[in-house]
Nucleic acid binder design. Sequence first.
DNA 1: GTGAAAGCGCTAACAA
DNA 2: TTGTTAGCGCTTTCAC
Lengths: 367, 367
Amino acid sequence: MTEAVSRPTLEAVAARAGVSRATVSRVVNGGDGVREPLAERVRQAVAELGYVPNQAARSLVTRRHDAVAVVIAEPETRVFADPFFALQLRGISKELTAHDNQLVLLLTEGRDDHARVARYLAGGHVDGALVFSLHLDDPLPGLIHQVGVPTVFGGRPGWSDDGGAGGPTRATRTGRGPGPGVVYVDCDNRGGARVAVRHLVDLGRRRVAHLTGALDQTSAVDRLDGYRDVMGEVPGGNDPRLVVESDFTPSGGERAMRELLDRCPDVDAVFAANDLTALGALRVLRASGRRVPEDVAVIGFDDMLPVAEEADPPLTTVRQDIEEMGRLMARLLLRGLADGRDRTGASANPPPAGVILPTTLIRRTSA
Amino acid sequence: MTEAVSRPTLEAVAARAGVSRATVSRVVNGGDGVREPLAERVRQAVAELGYVPNQAARSLVTRRHDAVAVVIAEPETRVFADPFFALQLRGISKELTAHDNQLVLLLTEGRDDHARVARYLAGGHVDGALVFSLHLDDPLPGLIHQVGVPTVFGGRPGWSDDGGAGGPTRATRTGRGPGPGVVYVDCDNRGGARVAVRHLVDLGRRRVAHLTGALDQTSAVDRLDGYRDVMGEVPGGNDPRLVVESDFTPSGGERAMRELLDRCPDVDAVFAANDLTALGALRVLRASGRRVPEDVAVIGFDDMLPVAEEADPPLTTVRQDIEEMGRLMARLLLRGLADGRDRTGASANPPPAGVILPTTLIRRTSA
DNA sequence: GTGAAAGCGCTAACAA
DNA sequence: TTGTTAGCGCTTTCAC
């Protein structure tokens, strides 16, 4: 673990090139307005000295950091059970890199960390933030919004824009539509659910059940809504016994599936809120002697690999383009930052409140 | 996406508290050498004004950033197939947070990004780096080592310390023991493999095969070595047909298992290089009409959830404490940084070259 | 123990 | 087009 040595400064480069610091600065930052022979001399000096600008000094005067925070709320535990997280991060990283921005990762471990995150964001260390937190009662999005740092949310934040004085949080749990001015990116949970359920109905299934996700997350709520959208139009589709609450986990899926079989032994199709839930359901169905998809068709959500592919039978599921979501979040944020800087067409190019990415049904064997 | 407002400076706090900037600075940074009544006045002013130090200004003079880069080489694709990545990051994040350090995430997408990463690290934006790259021929670790930024590697880097002038890379592929002065954290791949294989042998199995991982990764090489350690002592254990090269993927596992059954139909146990490989093996075994574990016992590696738990039958496997690995990496780096700063006992407390974390055998059903 | 003053390396007016 | 200059906000000697 060697110690880094002191690096050459602008001054040094200027001396070597026989020009002023200002000129070097110009060349280093794009180089407009410097005549070619000079610019070339400077570039040479930069190369020879291995000059790298000191970001701290630069930030001090520009008040910009070319850095973006990515805040991931730990309770979002799915994050540790599937590559969702990694893919999203990859998308974000690609986009940020393409625009010479750095990614500062902030993982939060419960409420105690909220203050820390808020302080960090308020501290002006980064130009903006990308925030993941999909729980209805999570105060973090509200807190961050109050801090006033440009932010794009990942997943529809389940929080209404009623302010809250920054105290113990007054975020409400309406769970419908974030307040105005809130930018977020989400996949079409509701539409995806509709397609899945419609697919089951088109297959001729009439007793289509839904094992929900954790209903304190907007994605679970939206998928349930999508299910209801379709089932509301199907004769007998409104049977409340067909909906069993679960929690996005395999064991939760098992439990829910067992309860479902108790309530409705005649069920002939199951739309599970995610692939993990479907996995639990599959196991219970198998144990109960039912064949999938012959007796009961099953559809999941997420297309979580390798789970969906390796399931027995391979899972038909709803795929979302996770990496693209990440990329889009970053793009929206950077665009917003750019607009904010050249305070010209800021309002001419207002960021959309919510961007919803499409989903696709991936047909495998289970439905 | 509101614009952040300008924040109060040290100057402002000093004015409000009726002291000098120096005094405020002292209080803000630990507060030794300031008499209590004064210190209290300062703290009050800080609170009232909501003062947050400007990190850029601070870094400019201290030449420290309280930030650490985490470099993850994309080819390390396992990262996107299981929560390994997330867990490690969580461990790192916890440790860094506990020491008020920020985490700058650098994801690399092939060779083109190497220069970018090297430049960033050389640019002195961070105090140190945690680097993941377990491929034998990856030039990145060598590059980074040359840059001279304090670094701890995740996983034994498969690269020898022969310098290399920084050009197109002269990293060699010896793949044994990183050069001196290289700090890394790894799990006990070799020991874990030994325990797994020993377990199979103790079960009475005599034809124990190994489906390797991608042998350009040190972890795969080490696990193979562990397998050989044990099999070398078992009568008939040296049969080379029992080792089939694979690549850490389910489909690779299938392919390898098929080949294995061709070569050695009498195989009665399989140690797969990871859980995904085991998954593929399980499927082929089932298709071949063999029962697991009665006819063929199977052990995986990683304890990758939910794959291992949800496998059919649930997978016996070797678990590593991934989060702890991350935490340890961060701890080693921060300790090294601290030692480097108060240039006193630097050599009195030399960081160990490699820290190997233990593994545990998790017994489920498959063996 | 406390304050005054000198920069850290850079950018951005403003002059030339 | 190029150079000169004045800070950005902070820490850190060095006097007091």
